[in-house]
Design a binder for these strands. Structure first.
Ligand SMILES: [Mn+2]
Ligand SMILES: [Mn+2]
Ligand SMILES: [Mn+2]
Ligand SMILES: [Mn+2]
Lengths: 236, 236
DNA sequence: GGTAAATTTTAGACATGACTAACTTTTACC
DNA sequence: GGTAAAAGTTAGTCATGTCTAAAATTTACC
């Protein structure tokens, strides 16, 4: 009866095209077909096809070879997807301490399937953990301690105890995985924003004469850390 | 396209076929094409096609018109998917208090994309919240109180305060949505196992003369509750 | 302004995984 | 055992969304 092939809801993939267009429009530059193709890891002709579909749905305005811009309906849609993405990715990185790349991929799947209620609950859970102050310690910090304790225990069980160091003792060219970040809430948040998170791989690029500053690469980005900051990061 | 969490060359949909075959095999009855079709909401010919694909991957043994059964490789993969499914669904229902139907659908998407690490972290988060027992109250209970407080607040804000009753005062034929469940941890767990969870819709079928027991329908299942139990459930 | 390079579109092929319709095999029942 | 119903398969169609190759358009630069 209801042939759901004919119901033109927007598929996950086309929601992603819209998401990327929205992200690009938020930047200064004009939205380019080529950039969309590169971001989606798809050939330019696929982008053209997607643009035509999005135009049909009145989510963007666009003519052949012409500029691409979102309609207000498109912007509304984009905002919804964007918020879901941010919520899920934030949950994965900040609460579960999943590395950015994995979190990105998973969030990009979930964002299309998640209901407003689930989104709200995740936000509330996050808020709950951030505000909850059990015995003087923040709940998220306790959770993350719990994560590292358990990880250590299971590593011990399978007998592969991996030595740990401070990031500050590594030499140029050495690679390591972040195990834990010490320091107060503010500094942890700062590290988080830079993409320094448990499980994230980092490469030490250069170390200044007295070990300060230290230049590292994280997810393709270059970062410069004070020695005092690098001493808060435990790697393995 | 090497995605190492998933079965190589098996799409999410075909993982679901395998999952259903495994679930059915866990029951007593022989696995029937017709049942798979019904569960997947798909025509029988689509099932035949899927069976051929699964056989090609050596996940099941099967010949035309013959019995269907999983190979040991198939069982191994089924277990992996099944555990991911259980983890995600458990998180959604027990922690986030999402209704079973929504949780099912979302878990069925996520199960194919989630890495072992994320699965483990979700389990640890759940365990952390369950064990955390400071200030006398269990963390999950505190979280759920936090959820209801926030829900009430936002309802008040948009001016649509919905009246609440005890489930025990409803009359046959009346429908309601569960708002909160009082009682201790054990009884809450019991309700949870029956599918009684915040946001879940219930219909009162019959009420015995003195209001005990009360027969209700939840997600198509019939349940009989003591009056004393029904008095713990707040609905709207 | 003219030409080459870059970008984008069109046209058509192809893989996937649904579907319908017709056919085959199995099961059920007298 | 014979026959009809049920279950399952095969064959062919269709929508989706990718791709390649070639054509069209825009841009960059002398
Ligand atoms: Mn133009
Ligand atoms: Mn996405
Ligand atoms: Mn047989
Ligand atoms: Mn699934």
């Amino acid at each position: 009866m209801t042939n759901f092939y004919h119901i033109r809801d927007l598929s996950s993939n086309f929601e992603d095209y819209l998401k990327i267009i929205g992200d690009l429009e938020a930047g200064k530059d004009q939205v380019r077909s080529k950039v969309i193709a590169k971001t989606m890891k798809v050939k330019p002709s696929s982008v053209t096809n997607a643009l035509q579909v999005l135009r049909e749905q009145k989510l963007i305005t666009y003519e052949p070879y012409g500029p691409i811009s979102m309609t207000s309906k498109g912007k509304r849609f984009w905002l919804i997807i964007h918020q879901k993405y941010k919520t899920v990715k934030g949950f994965l990185t900040e609460i579960l301490e999943i590395d950015h790349e994995t979190a990105d991929k998973l969030a990009c799947t979930i964002e299309h399937k998640i209901s407003p209620q689930v989104t709200e609950r995740i936000l509330l859970l996050k808020q709950f953990l951030k505000d909850e102050n059990l015995c003087g310690t923040n709940a998220i910090d306790r959770l993350h301690d719990f994560f590292s304790k358990r990880t250590e225990e299971s590593e011990k069980e399978i007998g592969k105890e991996i030595p740990r160091f401070l990031l500050s003792v590594l030499k140029p060219g050495e690679k390591a995985t972040i195990h834990k970040i010490d320091g107060d809430k503010a500094i942890r948040q700062k590290f988080l924003d830079m993409g320094l998170i448990r499980g994230q791989e980092v490469v030490v690029e250069r170390v200044a004469p007295l070990g300060d500053p230290i230049e590292i690469t994280v997810r393709g980005y270059s970062l410069s850390l004070r020695k005092s900051e690098a001493e808060l990061v435990i790697v393995k």
